[in-house]
Each structure stands twice: as C-alpha cells, then as structure tokens.
C-alpha cells in the first residue's frame, strides 16, 4: 500500500508542478478575461461590456487624473453576455473593489443592451443569462493562479497558454484590465465585420427588451460606488447603424440616463453626441487609436468636471 501511494504521489508531482508553472505563464494572450481574476483587489473601476473593455485605456486616464484621483482605475468590463447590470456583476464588483481612504472615481459605461434581458421574462433576475456564466460562478476574483477560473471556466486546452504566448500578436489583456485587440484593418475586412455585427444585433432585437430589473441593478451599482467615490456615466460611441439598433431597442434610453444623472447627481457623457470621427474594428469596438483618443478626451471631461 505504501509503495502504491508513494508511486502515485511521485508520479503526480511533476505533471502537477508543470501545470502550475504553465498557469503562471498566462499573460493575457490566451484568455480575454483571466487576468482580471488574478490581479489584486482594485481601488477604482471602469465597468461595462466589451465596448468599454476595448475602448477605455486605464493607464492613459490614470496618468492624467493622478493629481485629483490618486487611486488607479482598473478596467473591470467584460462582455454584453457576461456583464450586463444585474446581481452577478454587482456581487463581482463588490468582491473586486478594495477599501481605500483617498479620493477615487468610477466610470460606469452604459448602453441599452446592458439594461435589457430576455424578451420573454426580462424582469426575473433568476433567469438572467449571466447567472450560468463565470462572473456568477467565480468566488475568488484575486488569486494567482486562479485555479477556479482555469478548471471551471477556461474553455481552451491549457497548452494554448504556451501556444498563445508565442503566437498571439492580435489580442492581449493588459495588466490594467484594458483588452487590446488589433487585426486586419483593411476596409473590406472592417466592413464585413461590421455587417456581421449589424446582423447579429438586429437578431438580438427579437430576443431582448428593456429590463426594469436591470435598470434597478444599474442604480444599485451607482449607489454602491457613490458612497466610495465619484461616479461618471459614459456611453461609448458606435457606428451609426448599430446606434440605430440600440435606439430601436430602447428609445427612452437617453431619458433614463438623464433621470439617473439627476437622481444621483452624476455626470453623463454620451460620446455619440461628439463631433469626433471615431474608428471601429467592427462598428462596435474601437480601434486602438480611437480608444487612446477617447481615453484622453474622457480624462479631460473628468478633469473639467472637477473645476
């Protein structure tokens, strides 16, 4: 028996140690979310879906706001599937947020999708789709390596951690939470991706509708963060056709944001009203250059609001 157990132990040590080593190699190239569950608790957060994840660069904003808000912002935005406003996202935010005594701000990006849900039962939090996804499942959002994420939510084989580290030149989740993606920016490729998105979101119009319950959770999120710092609401820019789809989803969205702005006394910046000529990879997600510009402009707006 002792021989058996010792052989099993010896046999297991090397492979398990190697696996652990490989986990430590993940640097944001193999998975678009993992690094966000590895970093320590954060003092200030940027929230929203993939538009914010790719479109707001915390390091740029942090450099500019350092004098007023010394707490570094961290991009804790995911995707429209994973992080619409609801109980799962709010709980995860609470887990990720560190205590902090100094002055800090929070950026909450909003759009009609993040306050909509399944058209058949939009106001039942028990049926929110993200309940089955990782934000709801992960109980430890600051552990390196995060075994919970790897074993339960990492959809690819682990060899991809090494492979992607070597070959992935297209996407990377940075240490500040910004998800950088590049790729073919040829006009036809961009157009084709945009048409795909338009089809996809047109299809979503049949499946999703405004959810009063999610809107309540957006208010709970603001309420929770407002007691800890200054909150800014931001609507990310997007291509005109996709903006039209969003307006069809929730024609009253602007009014709702006006209501929130007034109720909580927060500033609301809608980048679709600006004159800037934003560039997108697919009509929805901004190019790296546009993301840099937006981050600078957003910093300026926040600075101006302080004066």
């Amino acid at each position: 028996m002792i021989k058996f157990i010792s052989r099993i132990f010896l046999f297991s040590v090397f492979p398990i140690a190697s696996l652990f080593g490989v986990f430590l190699l993940e640097n944001g190239t193999a998975d678009p979310f993992y690094q966000r569950f590895v970093t320590p608790k954060q003092e200030a957060l940027i929230l929203g879906n993939s538009k914010a994840a790719q479109g707001i660069i915390p390091s740029i904003i942090n450099d500019r706001l350092a004098d007023i808000y010394p707490a570094n912002l961290y991009n804790y935005s995911f995707t429209v599937y994973n992080s619409p406003f609801g109980p799962a996202y709010l709980e995860s935010i609470k887990m990720k947020l560190a205590d902090y005594d100094g002055k800090r701000c929070f950026i909450i990006t909003v759009d009609p999708w993040s306050i909509s849900s399944d058209i058949n039962d939009p106001n039942n939090p028990e049926k929110f789709e993200e309940n089955k996804l990782f934000l709801s499942g992960i109980k430890n959002v600051s552990s390196k390596p995060n075994l919970e994420y790897f074993f339960l939510w990492f959809d690819n084989p682990f060899y991809e951690i090494i492979l992607m580290r070597m070959i992935n030149q297209v996407s990377k989740l940075h240490s500040d939470g910004w998800y950088e993606t590049s790729g073919n920016m040829n006009e036809n490729a961009v157009k084709s991706r945009r048409l795909f998105m338009i089809d996809l979101y047109t299809d979503f119009l049949k499946k999703y509708s405004y959810s009063a319950e999610r809107f309540k959770y957006l208010q709970k999120t603001i309420d929770f963060l407002q007691t800890r710092g200054k909150v800014f609401l931001v609507r990310m820019p997007l291509h005109q056709n996709l903006l039209t789809i969003e307006q069809n989803l929730d024609p009253d969205f602007g009014l709702r944001m006006g209501f929130l702005s007034q109720k909580f006394g927060v500033q609301y910046f809608d980048f679709n009203n600006s004159e800037m000529n934003w560039e997108f990879k697919d009509g929805l997600h901004m190019t790296v250059e546009s993301a840099k510009n937006l981050s600078k402009i957003l910093s300026n707006k926040i600075l101006l609001s302080e004066n």
Partner: peptide, 20 residues
C-alpha cells in the same frame, strides 16, 4: 510504460477541456 503514463497524463492536463 512510465514515459507512456507521463505522456497520457500530460495530454490530460494540457490538452484536456476542464470547463464545468
């Protein structure tokens, strides 16, 4: 047989799908 065991375990750990 031992390299074969290690190889099989290696495949399980590195090429397996573990999501819930």
């Amino acid at each position: 047989r031992f390299p074969a065991y290690f190889g099989t375990l290696g495949f399980i750990l590195f090429a397996g799908v573990f999501s819930e």
